[in-house]
Amino acid sequence: MKVKIELFGATRDFSDQNILELSLNNDSTIEDARIEIIKYLKKNFDGNKDFVRIVNTSAFSSENNNIVSDNYKIKNNEKIAIIPPIGGG
């Protein structure tokens, strides 16, 4: 299935498109998406350690704007947001 990951904050440096498109198995979870993003970083950024750390400290939000846990099952074509460590104000 196809999943779109909307990039925010420091993760915007992962792509010029502000979005990553992943192909995942059906019934994949946030944990699977996290693994797939890290694979993408290994391939495209030589596994940049800072980038990997950002992914490992990021939360994710479902398309209906709920922060979801790692076992959340992603729907086909769902747009998920990655929420790296925050700090506004």
Partner: peptide
């Protein structure tokens, strides 16, 4: 969920580290 990217006099810029959720 708000993020800051600082821009410096030497033309560099940097996303601030922030607090993980």
């Amino acid at each position: 969920p708000i993020w800051k990217k600082e821009h410096y006099q030497n033309s560099e810029s940097n996303w601030l580290k922030g607090n993980p959720l």
